[in-house]
Design a protein around this nucleic acid. Structure first.
Lengths: 232, 232
DNA sequence: CCGGCCGGTTGACAATTATCAATCAAGATG
DNA sequence: CATCTTGATTGATAATTGTCAACCGGCCGG
């Protein structure tokens, strides 16, 4: 593990409050690796041997069944993934692959569970993190079950708009087919949804997104704090 | 709080390992109430004032958006619900209503959070519970995104089959329209899916489910440990 | 510079799912 | 017993979404 990355890790909500000694235990047993793009890090069904922390780059979480595949999330720095499987010592429910070149810390699940047993501050931080993850997935389920694909796209644009500090123009930042899968549709349908969105105040041109009529977009999207807020 | 219910609560995974003193704190501040059917217990968006524990009866968790509504889960005794909102002191993401007459314990969220700060065993139990809930929702998302409605129904039947100790015949146990919403379809479509399932080894007649050709059903459903296992 | 590849787009079509209206069946109520 | 209500079912139709094939255009390697 490189010494100058440690403070950054230590500053994460998950590790900030824990005992120094326990943090050292975790870090000592961890590995720091750099992966090229499109590398499979995790295969669903495998035992959860490591808690992963992505320090740079980005990672796609996806799942498959019966020759179909769907994107579940894209995670960027600095955050952890597959915490629940680590804690429960259960098989991964999702696979993970790097999207671009990524630096990733691997902490052995055994160490994580052991420290989790000993360190109350760490346990509390894990709860906070898990509760947050749980709520995100619930919101995603509501998005999927209550909205049409056009509405999902419109709300996605608005979420990104807010995530970028209110910018009316920003980069899509990922392949359209990945976005399509994330939003629960086919690439072809995303293309059509993008066209259909134009008269409602949002243009997506290649890799650029521009909101032309925020009012119109919001009238279509009807964003809700209880689905689209990515905090709380 | 009725004295003779306390041991049962105490035996729940969530409370089993915690300090007696802290358990007393929780229980002392709690309310035990009996609700008639079809009563709204929780409205999404409200502050999470209480952690709910269902002791008897059953409760539907549902969510709405833009005049649409969908069933998110049906929860039975003995389990808690809306733990994540309580812990994060955040608004409920789902509404809840009783399906039948139900006895429910309400523990003030403040007390839960306070004890959670003090009691390491409780904190660990909360983590275990949350990790389990998180994994359930992920499985549900995979079910929704990767399967057609007929496949979802087939797998639902198989899950219930296993949940009932392998019985080939069992009661549906809930209204079909609630089941339809849970599985992400309309009542009309559930009716048709039920018909379409007949030649694949499962009959649903009124409130009774009978598996006639388990092989056939499994060939259609292709159940997966990573979606349909409701433990792990 | 020239293919070849890949992701994206488009159009035609098919499958799936939703909607609407009508009907049916069973349980509740007077 | 008749009536009313409610949930389930069915058929007809529409909307949505997926599939397949073709094509476009940028990018890379030769």
């Amino acid at each position: 593990m490189r010494a100058d990355d440690i403070p950054e890790i230590r500053a994460l909500g998950l590790f900030r409050e824990m005992e120094a000694e326990n943090f050292d235990t975790l870090v000592r047993g961890g590995y720091f690796q750099t992966f090229p793009p499109q590398v499979d890090l995790i295969t669903e069904g495998d035992a959860a041997d490591f808690l992963h922390i992505i320090v740079s780059g980005s990672v796609e979480l996806y799942a498959g069944w019966n020759a179909r595949e769907t994107s579940m999330a894209t995670v960027g720095p600095i955050s952890t993934f597959i915490l629940a499987a680590t804690i429960r010592d259960a098989p991964y429910l999702m696979s993970a692959r790097t999207v671009e070149k990524s630096r990733i810390i691997l902490l052995p699940s055994n160490d994580v569970r052991e420290v989790f047993e000993r360190d109350h501050a760490f346990a509390r931080a894990v709860v906070t993190e898990l509760a947050q993850c749980y709520r995100s997935v619930i919101k995603n389920t509501k998005d999927l079950k209550l909205r049409t694909s056009l509405e999902r796209l419109a709300n996605y644009v608005l979420r990104r708009h807010h995530g970028n500090g209110g910018a009316l123009e920003f980069e899509l930042g990922q392949e359209k087919r990945r976005l399509a899968s994330l939003l629960g549709m086919t690439p072809e349908n995303l293309s059509r949804a993008i066209k259909a969105l134009r008269p409602h105040g949002a243009e997506i041109d290649g890799t650029w997104v521009r909101i032309t009529q925020k009012n119109d977009l919001e009238r279509l999207a009807k964003p809700s704090r209880l689905i689209d807020d990515h905090c709380s």
